[in-house]
Design a protein around this nucleic acid. Structure first.
Lengths: 297, 297
DNA sequence: CAGTTTGATCCAAAATTGGTATCGGATCAT
DNA sequence: ATGATCCGATACCAATTTTGGATCAAACTG
């Protein structure tokens, strides 16, 4: 097969239509240029240039090869450039796992900030529960996880990006909706919709702890995994629920969201997690963006 | 800049993720392979491979470069192939000039035959009068002309592809439309629409000769360049005309086309013309197709 | 018809490439 | 543990290839 140097030689000659000038442009002398072109022609098995003693012109095959050759050279340059950009953390792609809940509160801001600061970076977002994220992080299938505690120490780095209070969700027409804050005992007196113990284990456990600390035992009427389905059930008047603050972003009509009266409740935390041996150059860049965004979270 | 051999080396290593096996695949030994990869990395200024002592894996930049590298290699191969095909007269492009009249009778068949036998050939068709075609042929702006005599000897090759009789065109309801053939004197008795002496000089001169030989002098009411505009005027009842047989293909309703009674009239000839020093490999191929198509024309 | 221009060829020197031998670090089996 | 083994990097050598100056042959210029 031929070499890129030969392609560059050919393009120069084809553009100058003059071996001497082309050689000068390539910072070489004319004899090796002639020979490189000959070699290229021999490799291709095709005459690319028609040499008259006073003029050089392209054969049709040469014409065709010229356009392809320009393309090849352009592609090589862009490939080199892209590789450098990727290495510099200015381009490339990252696989990001995120929990369903974070898609309301944190993921949109992160994506927006990345798109703005790293326009050539492809963010591949995959919704999955925290446990799966940890597994995929270990397998190297995702570069970044946005997930809930607990996070094992084993080779992972992380920082907190979000800490949300839980707020009460009651049907809009409900008695409790009239007060500005709602206490846990009040809430526990109603039919209570809570989180599925497996798919949404973090919230499930968080609520269990919350209620046991307040020494109240609500009546669970439903177990659901997704915040929006919980809100839909609340809207239907089936019962009341506790959801993270981010639920306010959902703008669910027919559901009143009220802060809890209980002042120092536990918060729902979201962490930005990655493998410390992940060498994706985008990682530090995106981590910095994520940290900025998190602020004092 | 880097060389294709280095790209091939890199792709092999990236696919095997093992220098030894990659070297075997490339029919070389491992040390020079290592060196080529190092050189490539130095040229790009980017580490493409992460060498662990027991495993090799791609860096993100390497991943990005791999996809580009595959593209580059594919492109080089297809470029070489295309050049060979062009040289062999199986691909490429030809510029063909043709007269407006030939677009009814001969050009469609030629184009169809080429499309079928040379699917990868691009035919660039340009309508222009015979004089312009000769000029453009000389300038190398078109490879092939489909034009009317006279053809100068100077460096041109040609053969006849079409010889058409002229036939009479009269309004469908006209008196003359009732007979199966029409004589020149009959025709000359009517208001006669003829060809513009410059834009359609060949037909103009042909008719002048025809009438002068028949010793009749028609009354010219209109000069037009295009056959379809002549037919349109005939259809409008302005007068009668003489058009080449190919006009039958136009299916002009309201116009009756009748052969001339005069038995041995001069025919309108169409020639396939090219510069004998044109090196487009498609020329002999297309000339052969054109000759076949012309048959005994 | 000399003079100039242009690409091809020849040849010695230089650079590049590929190979062999070997090293250094890490993992694996015993 | 510890020696065997695997794997890529390095050092060095030989062969090939490439380079560029000198030269040549052909053809256009004036």
């Amino acid at each position: 097969m031929f070499e890129l140097s030969q392609v560059r030689c050919f393009v120069a000659v084809a553009e100058e239509l003059h071996f001497g000038r082309a050689a000068a442009r390539l910072n070489m002398t004319q004899p090796p240029l002639s020979r490189q072109i000959q070699i290229l022609e021999r490799i291709l098995g095709v005459k690319l240039l028609q040499r008259g003693n006073r003029l050089v012109r392209l054969t049709p095959a040469g014409q065709s090869f010229l356009t392809e050759a320009r393309l090849i050279l352009k592609l090589t340059e862009s490939a080199a450039l892209l590789a450098r950009r990727v290495a510099a953390g200015k381009a490339g792609s990252v696989n990001i796992g995120f929990t369903a809940a974070s898609s309301y509160s944190y993921v949109p801001e992160l994506v927006a900030a990345c798109r703005q600061q790293l326009p050539d970076v492809e963010l591949i977002l995959k919704e999955m529960v925290s446990g799966d994220q940890l597994k995929r992080l270990g397998a190297g299938e995702i570069d970044i996880g946005l997930l809930r505690p607990p996070i094992p120490r084993s080779g992972l780095q992380f920082f907190r990006v979000k800490a949300e209070r839980m707020i009460a969700a009651v049907p809009a027409g409900h008695q409790l909706a009239k007060s500005t804050t709602i206490s846990l005992p009040d809430l526990a007196a109603e039919p209570f919709i809570t989180y599925a113990p497996y798919e949404a284990r973090y919230f499930h456990d968080l609520l269990v702890e919350l209620f046991s600390r307040a020494a109240v035992a609500p009546v669970y009427v439903q177990h659901l995994a997704q915040i929006h389905s919980i809100l839909a059930i609340v809207q239907a008047g089936v019962g009341v629920a506790l959801v993270p603050e981010a639920a306010e972003k959902l703008q669910f009509s027919g559901v009143a969201l009220r802060p809890l009266a209980d002042p120092q409740q536990r918060v729902a935390e979201l962490y930005f997690v990655w493998r410390d041996d992940n060498d994706n150059p985008l990682l530090p860049v995106i981590a910095a963006i994520a940290r900025d965004l998190a602020g004092g979270a």
